[in-house]
Amino acid sequence: MSDPLYTEIIIDEARNASNEGTLENPDISQHDSNPMCGDSITLQMNVNDDSISDVKWHGDGCTICKACTSVLTQLIKGKDLGYVRNLKKEEILSELGLEYLLKQSPIRIKCALLSLKALKLGLYTFLGKKIEDSASLNNLKDEASKLY
């Protein structure tokens, strides 16, 4: 029996999610939730030499949320901040074959992109403390609020 959304790849990715856990004293810690379905996650990162030296996440989420969060953490670990702050939603979704959610499921897309929203907001706060140029920072915040 098969299902277009609940493929073995997605269920396995969620069940054996990468980087689940907690960081001690992280440089960035961002919580976010979807009140409608109850997904609730915290994304934590350490930054060294302008790149993500470590990343962990924890919380309670549905299969779609967990699978996408797992992929997101794989994509950003070890990468420099320039890449991370420009990470596009399509990159995460395509890893799991979920691009079609963008068009077809306004509800489930929120589950898929919750961790990306947390990432953008977390970076916004982190970079804000270092007084980056404010125009590009506001872009980041704007992007987070317009993800879905």
Partner: peptide, 23 residues
Amino acid sequence: HDVHPHDVATIIDREGIAVRSGH
């Protein structure tokens, strides 16, 4: 067991079945 209610509701919605998931 370890399946989020939202996933259950989505899977059975494909069969036309409307149940509530949430708090």
